[in-house]
């Protein structure tokens, strides 16, 4: 078992990539920074809008800002010392390697299912050694018992796997918060165990 100082020491040397700074990415980033993570690489092309505020880690006076700029401001208010590399760009197959190949763990935090699949397939094919934590299924409220983790090698998927966001089933703060924090928790677990393995082989 590790105490919090030991945990922070290990995490301060780690780099996590977050693809997407919406409901999943912004909340996951906040938890990772609170935990003492050393460096985050965050990519998103979107701007903060009013409907985002029902679940995303942004504030009313940030409407109209680039999400990456707004998130940097908010994360630096939690820890002014954390290193943030932000990219105000859309994540595509052409830039995934440039953005995330140095990461110890990558978080899939997109909204759109096709984007999720694109990142998962690209990472599993081109960066199979980097653990990838994805999310699928977090719309509406209730049915929390359906939320689970599915692990297959270096791919872990959090969520209920079925509740799709639609006009009648919008994403809401509690469940998006739960799933994004599951992603953060899995990331911590992986990062701390990576360190254990390194020590064991020395």
């Amino acid at each position: 078992m590790l105490n919090f100082n030991q945990i922070k020491t290990i995490l301060s040397k780690k780099v996590v990539g977050i693809a997407g700074a919406g409901g999943l990415g912004s909340n996951c980033a906040a938890s990772l920074v609170r935990s003492g993570l050393g460096k985050l690489i965050i990519a998103d092309f979107d701007v903060v809008s009013q409907p985002n505020l029902n679940r995303q880690f942004y504030f009313h006076d940030q409407i109209g800002m680039n999400k990456t700029d707004a998130l940097r401001d908010n994360l630096l208010r939690i820890n002014p010392m954390c290193l943030l590399q932000i990219h105000n760009t859309r994540v595509t197959e052409e830039n995934i390697s440039l953005l995330f190949s140095v990461c110890d763990v990558v978080i899939e935090a997109f909204d759109d299912a096709e984007q999720k699949q694109m990142l998962i397939e690209y990472m599993l094919t081109n960066h199979p050694n980097i653990p990838l934590i994805a999310a699928s299924g977090m719309a509406g409220c209730g049915n929390l018992e359906q939320i689970s983790l599915i692990q297959s090698g270096n791919l872990i998927i959090c969520g209920d796997g079925s509740s799709e966001v639609s006009y009648d089933n919008p994403p809401m703060a509690p469940k998006v918060g739960i799933v994004s924090n599951m992603q953060a928790d899995v990331a911590l677990q992986i990062l701390l165990s990576q360190n254990e393995n390194e020590n064991n082989t020395k």
């Binding site: 997407g20 919406g22 409901g23 999943l24 990415g25 935090a109 997109f110 909204d111 759109d112 299912a113 999720k116 699949q117 998962i120 994805a134 999310a135 699928s136 299924g137 977090m138 719309a139 599915i150 297959s152 998927i157 796997g161 079925s162 509740s163 799709e164 966001v165 994403p171 998006v176």
Partner: peptide, 12 residues
């Protein structure tokens, strides 16, 4: 065999 068929749905 260990087979995983994981459904990806939009939302985030």
């Amino acid at each position: 065999d260990d087979l995983k068929i994981i459904h990806l749905v939009s939302g985030g």
